[in-house]
């Protein structure tokens, strides 16, 4: 039996919009095991981004409990959440979100700064990661000197920098052409093979074949869970 890494227990999330309350997530139960490769799909406005934010400890539930590696995060302070995010979760965004003033290497090393890793260790590790994402030759380039695919590989490298349990990717191929997107997916699969849990949020149905488990979210609820062999 694989260990549970993320568990959502009857989670609700409401947003206040002026006078009215919008129920974005209406009672979701979800369990993600170590080493899973999960794709969450759903149309825009379905609540999948909200679910992703809560899985990634970027946001807290209005009601219900979220467990990350066995720890209930509902009552934690923002700085404790930041620590958990930095250590356990690696984020990959659709728009890459690299820091434009930092080189590829520095971007990858950035999360380690917030974990207090010393400089030599940071550089050593960032160089290893650069090698893994096949970007050693771009070590000192700024993001705007890199192609879209390269930028996303730097972003994935950054997500790996603190050796997280989980990589949480929000439309990681959304801004890339098909070929580059396929390369990025290949990289995710390799990482998954080495034991990293991958959670991918998308509305690109082509990505579904990569997943062991597909969750479909609609109107704030999990509508369907599909397992693949």
């Amino acid at each position: 039996m694989k260990q549970t890494i993320i568990k959502l227990d009857n989670v609700h999330k409401n947003y206040e919009m002026g006078d009215s309350t919008v129920q974005a997530v209406k009672g979701i139960n979800l369990e993600i095991k170590k080493g899973d490769f999960i794709v969450i799909i759903g149309p825009s406005g379905s609540g999948k981004s909200t679910v992703m934010n809560m899985i990634g400890a970027l946001d807290l539930a209005t009601k219900g409990n979220i467990f990350l590696d066995g720890q209930n995060i509902e009552h934690l302070e923002e700085s404790e959440l930041a620590q958990i995010r930095g250590k356990k979760i690696g984020f990959v965004f659709q728009t890459f979100n690299l820091i434009p003033t930092l080189t590829a290497l520095e971007n990858i090393a950035l999360p380690m700064i917030f974990q207090g890793v010393d400089k030599n260790e940071r550089i050593k590790r960032a160089e290893e990661i650069l090698e893994n994402v096949k970007l050693s030759h771009r070590r000192n380039h700024l993001p705007n000197e890199l192609s879209g695919g390269e930028r996303q590989r730097v972003a994935i490298g950054r997500a790996l920098s603190n050796n997280p349990e989980v990589i949480l990717a929000d439309e990681p191929t959304g801004n890339l052409d098909t070929k580059t997107g396929a390369e990025i997916m290949k990289l995710f699969k390799e990482l998954n093979k080495r034991g990293t849990t991958i959670i991918l949020v998308t509305h690109d149905t082509n990505l579904l074949n990569h997943a062991q488990k597909v969750l479909k979210i609609k109107d704030g609820k999990i509508e369907q869970v599909r397992r693949r062999k």
Partner: peptide, 16 residues
Amino acid sequence: TKEIGTMKAIGAKNSD
């Protein structure tokens, strides 16, 4: 703002 959000996502505390 977005950059700040990114830094927070990758582990920056408010104090950082």
